[in-house]
């Protein structure tokens, strides 16, 4: 039980990490993250990298959809733009990784602003369909602009290099992906405490009131699109160096829906929710797969039923989580935390 935790200034009340307990656990978490790669094999490191990339993309989408209330069905396309930008810059111009990373983000942000332009006149489901159009258009460009994107065969990318050091294993990439992920998450958490972030939330909650308060709706919606696509672009760049190949098949519509599912399962508008959602959507299918591996060697017929069942169970899990906690995993986490805050004296 935590005691004597009183806030005496507004600043203390507004702090991200409000108490010693939180700060203590945060240090533990960072130590665990730092120690993780030394304790596990390449498979778990690969999954960690993949999760890191998913977290960056999900946080980005949460800025746009969770905070600013603009539903996007084109997030995977922006991840794709980031991925293609870095692949093209690396293979055709030979730019180093450190330069590709921000440029991927910027190019995605640029296209994000263009796609966001219809938000001046449209909102809700209509805007959602406009972003769907972006998904389809970019997908088409990835496939058909063969001279630049390599068409359906895509582009093979050499491993990234950082200060002459080759990032050719999951272990080395981990030390790039995870710090970038942490930086991205920190930036997003702080964004919501700035004027811009507050404006996003005002627009989401009631756009007319927001406008009356002096928020330029169009301008701030474009900011939201830019920020969100920037995150997507950075995630795309990291994904390219992780998979070492980019093809249009990596950014289909259902990938966009997967990102939406991440933030809905995790908790709309919450940075922590994006993290939980990304971990959930990346790791649960793997966990189900590993569970299934225990049955291997049993009857073939039984296995032929069990395999498709994974997808069903995964879908059911999402539904069950949402039925019991519509505000997502982040809310569940908050309740658990609150329970332990007063534990063992609940009343």
């Amino acid at each position: 039980m935590r005691m004597g935790d009183f806030k005496q200034t507004y600043a203390a009340d507004e702090a991200v990490f409000r108490s010693g307990t939180v700060r203590f656990w945060l240090v533990v978490l960072f130590l665990a993250i730092a120690a993780f790669p030394f304790m596990v094999g390449p498979y778990l490191l690969y999954m960690a990298n993949l999760t890191g990339v998913a977290i960056i993309a999900a946080v980005g989408l949460n800025i746009l959809t969770g905070a600013a209330g603009q539903i996007s069905l084109g997030h995977a396309a922006f991840v794709g733009i980031g991925a293609y930008t870095s692949a093209i810059l690396t293979t055709k111009l030979g730019l180093p990784f450190l330069l590709c990373l921000p440029l991927s983000g910027l190019s995605a942000a640029f296209f994000g602003v263009i796609v966001g332009a219809p938000s001046m006149r449209m909102k809700g489901l209509y805007l959602c369909i406009a972003t769907l159009a972006a998904q389809v258009i970019f997908d088409f460009i990835f496939v058909h602009w063969t001279s630049v994107t390599g068409g359906i065969r895509g582009i093979n990318v050499p491993s990234a290099e950082l200060f002459g050091y080759k990032l050719d294993t999951e272990f080395k990439l981990y030390f790039v992906t995870i710090p970038i992920m942490i930086a991205a998450v920190t930036a997003a958490r702080n964004l919501f405490r700035t004027r811009v972030g507050r404006a996003f939330i005002a627009i989401r909650d009631r756009d007319i009131s927001a406008e009356l308060m002096g928020i330029n709706l169009f301008q701030y919606k474009l900011y939201a699109f830019a920020a969100s696509s920037f995150y997507a672009g950075v995630a795309g760049c990291l994904q390219v160096y992780l998979l070492r190949i980019v093809t249009p098949e990596h950014f289909p519509l259902h990938e966009s829906i997967r990102y939406l599912a991440m933030i809905i399962v995790g908790g709309l508008g919450s940075v922590l929710g994006s993290i939980f959602g990304a971990i959930f959507m990346t790791m649960v299918p793997e966990a189900l797969q590993s569970g299934l591996a225990l049955f291997q060697g049993l009857d073939d017929k039984l296995m032929s039923y069990l395999f498709p069942l994974q997808t069903v169970v995964f879908g059911l899990l999402i539904v069950v989580f949402l039925v019991f906690e519509p505000h997502g995993l982040a809310e569940m986490w908050r309740r658990v935390k609150n329970y332990f805050r007063l534990w063992p004296f609940e009343h």
């Binding site: 094999g41 690969y46 998979l243 299918p285 994974q310």
Partner: peptide, 23 residues
């Protein structure tokens, strides 16, 4: 013969490959 279902999904297939190589 040791196999896993990869669902025709590149990320999963690569993950599964790496897992099996290590194991």
């Amino acid at each position: 013969y040791i196999y896993e279902d990869s669902g025709y999904d590149l990320k999963r297939a690569v993950a599964s490959f790496k897992k099996m190589m290590a194991k």
